[in-house]
Measured scan of single mutants.
Amino acid sequence: KFGRVHERAEGPAKILAIGTATPFHWVDQSSYPDYYFRVTNSDHLVDLKEKFRRICNRTMISKRHMFLTEEILQKNPNLCSHNEPSFDVRQDILVSEIPKLGKEAVLMAIDEWAQPKSKITHLVFCTRSGVDMPGADYQLIKLLGLSPSVQRVMMYQQGCFAGGTMLRLAKDLAENNKGARVLVVCAESSAIGFRGPSEDHPDNLIAQALFGDGAAALIIGSDPKMGLERPIFEIVTTAQTFVPNGDCHLALHLREMGLTFHCTKDVPPTIAKNVESCLIKAFEPLGISDWNSIFWILHPGGNAIVDQVESTLGLEPNKLQATRNILREYGNLSSACVLFILDEIRKKSGREGLKTSGDGLDLGVLLSFGPGLTIETVVLR
């Protein structure tokens, strides 16, 4: 008597548009150690500064975009301390800036989509910054002038794996609601975790050397309108798992001094060791076991992770080039990073006149991972 209210779509979910945005301000990685130790009044920690310089040199990052300028840091000195309470200051900045950054990426996506924004039916927003109620999803709806009846899902504090999570959720929403057009937004800022150095917490140096700011937005829907919408990728399958006891290797915690970062040297080999089982589960039903026969979007948690995944799986050097390019130009953008790589690989395919948006290949994989050593596996066509 009370059956399904919403009719299912006929076809699989497809990515119809991609937009990205970054803050205008950026830092050069080669000179960042001098800048970082100067603005945090830590130049007296000579040995720690040299250690940080070595870490920065190993990241293979060229530059990173950041909202925090020297002027902002001078006005808010607690942000430059390692342990002073600064959460309220971070909140005041990020509750406002995260939706604005997301808006810039959304406008780029809508411009490519070339359809009225009134056709957006759902919003899925993800960030690890600016936790608030009502959330960044609500603020973004107002900034864009979208209908208050847009169906919203707000996900805070997920971390680097969440780019894949957003695709998984959007696929379910698009395929189970005929005519749905799902706006996916990942907006991230390193301002939540920026803090001064400490000899007692070397993990913090890794975070300060890796993370950048950026937002990515996608429009996802099934059954694209012929002649009006141009699909870029099809989302074939999605899956999530985590490595048992992985939280002892990688975890982040909200504290009075901001978001703290805990990471062990076992993260790269542990991820590399567990990736292939995810690939087998995803691609065995499709008859694929040659990992060089697919295109790759791999989250660059750090250069060591990229190198070890490449080595463990025997990947050809060009397979992870898009990942390395984004890491070099932006650093680790947390949940937004794989979506930047997705954009990079389709643009490169277009520039080179390849037959598909995925490096000329039919199928590919998007792998994202993060806290708890959670792994998201997304098969794309």
Rank of each mutant, 00 (worst) to 15 (best):
residue 130 G to L: 14
residue 93 I to Q: 12
residue 303 N to L: 13
residue 323 T to Q: 01
residue 103 K to M: 11
residue 92 D to S: 13
residue 245 N to W: 07
residue 38 R to K: 14
residue 306 V to E: 01
residue 268 P to E: 12
residue 368 S to E: 13
residue 233 F to M: 04
residue 16 L to S: 03
residue 249 H to Y: 11
residue 379 V to H: 14
residue 116 P to V: 02
residue 326 I to N: 10
residue 22 T to I: 08
residue 324 R to G: 05
residue 284 E to M: 03
residue 132 D to E: 10
residue 123 L to I: 12
residue 138 Y to H: 11
residue 330 Y to T: 12
residue 106 V to A: 14
residue 345 I to L: 11
residue 141 I to M: 11
residue 7 E to D: 08
residue 130 G to C: 13
residue 131 V to S: 03
residue 2 F to V: 10
residue 321 Q to D: 15
residue 137 D to C: 12
residue 335 S to Y: 00
residue 26 W to E: 12
residue 237 T to S: 14
residue 23 P to F: 00
residue 301 G to E: 15
residue 123 L to K: 01
residue 297 I to G: 06
residue 257 M to S: 11
residue 108 M to P: 04
residue 47 D to G: 11
residue 329 E to A: 03
residue 300 P to W: 02
residue 271 I to V: 04
residue 4 R to P: 15
residue 325 N to R: 11
residue 310 E to C: 07
residue 316 E to R: 05
residue 87 F to C: 12
residue 127 T to R: 11
residue 17 A to I: 08
residue 60 M to D: 08
residue 307 D to T: 00
residue 140 L to Y: 00
residue 347 K to S: 01
residue 270 T to A: 14
residue 306 V to T: 08
residue 57 N to C: 05
residue 337 C to S: 15
residue 255 R to E: 15
residue 136 A to T: 10
residue 328 R to P: 06
residue 104 E to G: 04
residue 121 T to G: 03
residue 104 E to Q: 11
residue 35 Y to R: 14
residue 312 T to R: 09
residue 266 D to C: 10
residue 342 L to P: 01
residue 87 F to S: 12
residue 71 E to Y: 01
residue 336 A to L: 04
residue 369 F to K: 15
residue 346 R to H: 00
residue 108 M to A: 13
residue 369 F to R: 15
residue 295 F to M: 04
residue 357 S to K: 06
residue 125 F to Q: 00
residue 138 Y to F: 10
residue 331 G to T: 00
residue 364 G to F: 01
residue 239 A to L: 04
residue 269 P to D: 15
residue 295 F to E: 02
residue 349 S to P: 04
residue 301 G to T: 04
residue 10 E to P: 12
residue 299 H to M: 04
residue 6 H to D: 08
residue 114 A to R: 08
residue 356 T to P: 03
residue 239 A to G: 08
residue 241 T to N: 14
residue 4 R to T: 02
residue 123 L to T: 07
residue 344 E to S: 10
residue 233 F to H: 06
residue 84 E to T: 13
residue 248 C to A: 11
residue 24 F to S: 00
residue 16 L to P: 01
residue 129 S to E: 13
residue 244 P to F: 11
residue 89 V to E: 15
residue 66 M to Q: 11
residue 347 K to E: 04
residue 230 R to K: 06
residue 137 D to I: 04
residue 276 E to V: 07
residue 242 F to C: 11
residue 105 A to C: 03
residue 86 S to C: 08
residue 245 N to S: 12
residue 93 I to S: 12
residue 356 T to E: 01
residue 17 A to Y: 10
residue 313 L to D: 13
residue 140 L to I: 11
residue 25 H to S: 11
residue 14 K to G: 05
residue 129 S to D: 12
residue 240 Q to H: 04
residue 271 I to T: 12
residue 262 H to T: 10
residue 117 K to A: 10
residue 131 V to C: 08
residue 75 K to W: 07
residue 270 T to M: 08
residue 379 V to G: 15
residue 266 D to L: 04
residue 247 D to F: 06
residue 245 N to G: 09
residue 141 I to S: 09
residue 135 G to A: 06
residue 363 L to G: 12
residue 300 P to R: 07
residue 255 R to W: 07
residue 269 P to G: 02
residue 330 Y to P: 13
residue 288 I to W: 03
residue 74 Q to A: 05
residue 236 V to P: 09
residue 322 A to E: 11
residue 248 C to Y: 11
residue 373 L to Q: 15
residue 129 S to G: 13
residue 269 P to K: 12
residue 352 E to C: 15
residue 251 A to I: 01
residue 329 E to T: 05
residue 302 G to A: 11
residue 281 K to W: 03
residue 18 I to V: 03
residue 38 R to L: 01
residue 297 I to A: 13
residue 354 L to P: 08
residue 54 R to G: 06
residue 374 T to S: 13
residue 110 I to G: 03
residue 370 G to K: 15
residue 326 I to K: 07
residue 360 G to T: 01
residue 365 V to R: 15
residue 336 A to E: 10
residue 327 L to R: 07
residue 372 G to N: 02
residue 347 K to M: 11
residue 135 G to D: 09
residue 271 I to M: 14
residue 364 G to S: 03
residue 19 G to F: 10
residue 363 L to A: 14
residue 91 Q to N: 00
residue 309 V to N: 00
residue 314 G to Y: 12
residue 106 V to K: 02
residue 12 P to R: 08
residue 254 L to Q: 14
residue 243 V to M: 04
residue 294 I to N: 12
residue 1 K to C: 01
residue 61 I to W: 04
residue 286 L to A: 08
residue 58 R to K: 12
residue 11 G to T: 05
residue 95 V to W: 12
residue 76 N to D: 02
residue 19 G to S: 07
residue 240 Q to Y: 00
residue 82 H to W: 15
residue 131 V to R: 02
residue 282 A to K: 00
residue 235 I to K: 01
residue 241 T to G: 09
residue 123 L to R: 08
residue 58 R to L: 15
residue 80 C to Y: 12
residue 310 E to S: 01
residue 354 L to Q: 12
residue 71 E to A: 08
residue 30 S to D: 02
residue 376 E to T: 01
residue 13 A to E: 03
residue 93 I to T: 08
residue 264 T to Y: 13
residue 360 G to E: 02
residue 243 V to P: 04
residue 331 G to A: 06
residue 138 Y to M: 12
residue 123 L to V: 04
residue 10 E to N: 11
residue 269 P to Q: 11
residue 21 A to F: 04
residue 240 Q to W: 04
residue 103 K to I: 03
residue 268 P to R: 09
residue 47 D to M: 14
